[in-house]
């Protein structure tokens, strides 16, 4: 085997997981860096709040780390990770709905020492007008997503936002494909109804 290659080539998820299971923290860090954005975007779309999303995404990684030894590779690592993340989000939403506290919406102003500022979502290129338009549209869409219940929310996020294939979503949510399709259909009709003036 060519050893020089292994220095330059990137470790696969499986290799990193194996290293993790042997207690190599740096391998876990590598996995975090690899998936933080994806996991974060799922939690972000689930709760619609930056701080909360960051907290939940971190929690997902912490739980994954703590139970990495139990991970036997029946599915790919990221499927497993997404399952953990979506469960955490659903529990959190259930908790919030029980306690009737809503999470801060995207357009909710933040109080800072310099006064009130509006929440910013990262955006690139485009003209200021286009940015504004897109941002507003994004906020409307997030608001509409927030109006869905957790079960429908996660399906529309995984399918229409993260663009994952159906079989992957089935494995993540551990629900059969028929159920996923009907939830997606339902979620889309609700969103369509709420967004008819924006789209």
């Amino acid at each position: 085997m060519d050893n020089s290659l292994s220095h330059t080539s990137v470790d696969s998820d499986e290799a990193l997981v194996a290293k993790c299971q042997k207690g190599e923290r740096s391998a876990f860090d590598e996995l975090v860096l690899r998936y933080q954005k994806k996991v974060f975007n799922i939690t972000y779309r689930m709760v619609g709040n930056y701080t909360e999303a960051s907290d939940l995404a971190q929690e997902a990684f912490v739980r994954a780390y703590k139970s990495i030894k139990k991970f036997r590779g029946q599915s790919s690592f990221y499927t497993w990770l997404y399952t953990i993340a979506s469960n955490i989000c659903r529990n959190r939403l259930r908790y919030l709905s029980r306690h009737r506290r809503s999470v801060v919406s995207l357009d909710n102003p933040i109080q800072t020492e310099e006064g009130v500022v509006l929440r910013e979502i990262a955006d690139k290129s485009l003209s200021p007008m286009a940015i504004l338009e897109r941002k507003m549209k994004g906020e409307f869409i997030q608001k509409a997503i927030n109006s869905l219940d957790a079960r429908h929310r996660i399906v529309v996020i995984l399918r229409d936002i993260e663009l994952l294939p159906y079989d992957e979503i089935c494995r993540i949510l551990k629900v059969n494909i028929g159920t996923i399709k009907s939830r997606l259909h339902r979620a889309r009709s609700i969103l369509r109804e709420r967004l008819k003036d924006v789209i």
Binding site: N41, G138, D160
Partner: peptide
């Protein structure tokens, strides 16, 4: 609508 969901800006952690 479906396409604008797919085009939603990704947020940086």
């Amino acid at each position: 609508m479906v396409s604008s969901l797919g085009k939603l800006e990704k947020v940086e952690p």
